[in-house]
Simulated assay, not measured.
Amino acid sequence: MSARARATPLLFLHGNWHGAWCWTEVIAALAGSGRSAVAVDMAGHGLRARRPACLTGRPFDAEALATEVSPVADVDLDQAGDLLVSQIKRVGRGGPVTVIAHSMGGTVLTRAAEQAPEAVAHAVYLSGLMPASDVPALAYLRMPENAGALVQSCVRADPAAIGALRLDLVSGDAAYRRQLLDAFYGDVDRAVAEAAFGLLTPDAPIGIVRGTTTLTRRGWGSVPRTYVTCARDMAVRPALQNKFISDATVAFPDNPTAVAALDSSHSPFLSMPGQVADLIAELG
């Protein structure tokens, strides 16, 4: 671990459909260490989310679910990256920050680290999308290494038509709801998983997963990074996690990816927040 990252502030970024709220227990566990830690919302999510009318309209209109253009359809990777850079600089107050990104948040972290490598002391990907140069995150979700992932088949509507990856969070289909819970929260206490499910945002902007970043040796390639694998992940499968690690190391062999491991589902910040906090404190 570089001296540059030692005792730097910590900034946590969530993945698709989630919000800053998912890091609450991890940040609480870090409080005793005296580290400065904050979670932020990604563009189009959390307090920056906008919900389609079709999910709350009554009587329910299945056709509207499939056709209503998302209110976050204009959000793209450029906006998400710019927002994260501004959040990093605000938290760092002129100094570098250790950024921990989960799932699709990794795509945004990659863009931010390429734009402002001097602001990122350490990039930590928690089962995160860590795309190669000029490859969209969406392409990885369809790769053989991600076979068996449970999220894609839960997306309702054509993302290209509505501008978002839409989940039917008010569905009365018990099997559909169970699949989403298994995808995100397989080892999370049921009551906590249900509470988290109620906080999800239905639309994740398609522009974030379709965007690409050209990686350079002086940009993202210069930033120290660690990939934290989740062995029982049903959203970003272990084989895909390993592909991110190996591809990054091949592309930037003079800055290989360090690896840490958790025996968890996709959301260890809810199933084992103390272990996640201990791991992050050790890394950064």
Rank of each mutant, 00 (worst) to 15 (best):
M1N: 07
A3L: 15
R6Q: 13
T8Q: 10
L10Q: 04
N16S: 15
H18M: 15
G19K: 05
A20H: 09
C22Q: 09
C22A: 06
C22R: 02
T24L: 11
E25W: 12
A29L: 00
L30M: 14
L30K: 13
G32Y: 05
S36M: 08
A37V: 01
M42W: 02
M42V: 02
M42S: 06
R48Q: 01
R50G: 08
R51T: 09
P52M: 03
C54F: 04
T56P: 00
G57R: 08
G57C: 03
R58S: 08
F60L: 10
D61R: 07
E63S: 11
A64N: 02
A64G: 06
A66H: 11
T67L: 10
E68S: 09
V69P: 00
P71N: 09
P71A: 05
A73P: 01
D74V: 04
D76K: 04
D78T: 15
A80H: 07
L84S: 03
S86I: 02
S86L: 04
G95C: 10
G95D: 10
V97N: 12
T98W: 00
T98K: 02
A101Y: 04
H102L: 11
G105F: 07
G105T: 03
G106N: 07
T107H: 00
V108D: 08
L109E: 07
Q115W: 09
A116I: 04
P117H: 10
A119C: 13
H122P: 00
A123L: 06
V124F: 11
V124M: 13
Y125E: 04
L126W: 11
M130T: 10
P131R: 02
P136F: 11
A139P: 00
M143G: 01
A149E: 01
A157R: 05
D158V: 14
P159L: 00
G163P: 09
G163C: 08
A164R: 03
L165M: 13
D168E: 11
L169G: 12
S171L: 12
G172Q: 14
D173E: 10
A174Y: 15
A175G: 00
Y176I: 11
R178K: 15
R178W: 04
F184M: 13
G186V: 00
A195D: 15
L199T: 12
P205L: 08
P205V: 03
I206S: 13
T214L: 07
T214K: 07
T214Y: 00
T214F: 00
G219F: 14
G221E: 05
G221S: 06
G221H: 03
V223I: 13
V223Q: 09
V228A: 12
R232P: 00
R232W: 06
R232D: 01
D233V: 07
V236F: 03
I245E: 02
D247E: 13
V250F: 01
D254K: 12
D263T: 11
P268H: 09
F269G: 03
L270Y: 13
S271W: 02
G274Q: 15
Q275H: 14
V276K: 10
A277T: 13
D278C: 10
I280N: 06
L283G: 08
